[in-house]
Amino acid sequence: MSSDTATPAPPTDTPTAPQGERSRSSRRVSRDDLGLLLGLPALCAVLLGGWAVWRATAELDDIEARSLAWGLLVQLFGEHLLLTALSAAAVVLTAIPLGIALTRPAARRAAPAVVTVANFGQAAPAIGILILLAMWLGFGVPVAVLALSLYAFLPVLQNTIVGLQGVDQTLVEAARGMGMSRWSVLGRIELPLALPVIMAGVRTALVLAVGTAAFATFINAGGLGSVITTGLYLFRNSVLISGGLLIAVLALLVDWAGRVLELVATPKGMR
């Protein structure tokens, strides 16, 4: 992204990287990316394996054993993943169509305004948005999904717009000249070419969602955040560390899945 937008860049490498680096995803897999693609699952396996061994062998007191019961943790893990998946799906289904609409000739002039408004929203702390929404609409999973989606909306919208704007206009004209309709130009030329950038946005959205989903427990929407609150309230360091570790591992796995998705989605001709 250009360095003068007033946004907190979403927490991934892409947006903070200055100009020269951004097109990296559209080139061949660099060594750094390869390191991450292989290193992330290895790191997760080590962390998770080490933790599981500790959990299976450590002598836990009553409270610890109850808050770290296998069944409970698996359930929370699932809830966390579901929250992440639902909000990512909601974002993909809304932000990409909006991004496409905003790059069509009819609406092109509105795009900067929409992005500016979205930027302002992004400066709001996630925890504040989540809690305010819960006060307004009530507690529970749907509100958590809404809050997470709002938070993860901007990167996908912005990357969709940037990706589509980055498509060489001569290619679009050539396709039109060959007699393709506007829709087939969009589907067969513009979207495939913009896909790497769009997918980078989707990965950012996934990472934001999985991190924010940790707060879902504050509004009774489940997820692994509750392990941390339990650990804090009951003053059990082992529970606190387990919670932090499990959330971190889940986030890293989601990030990894996003990277794989990014790679798979890149059309063959662009790798």
């Binding site: 992330l40 941390i228 560390i241 932090g244 890293l252």
Partner: peptide, 13 residues
């Protein structure tokens, strides 16, 4: 990787 780790998780650790 650091930016991927959620802040609440890091706080817990």
């Amino acid at each position: 990787v650091g930016l991927t780790v959620p802040s609440l998780a890091l706080l817990g650790l």
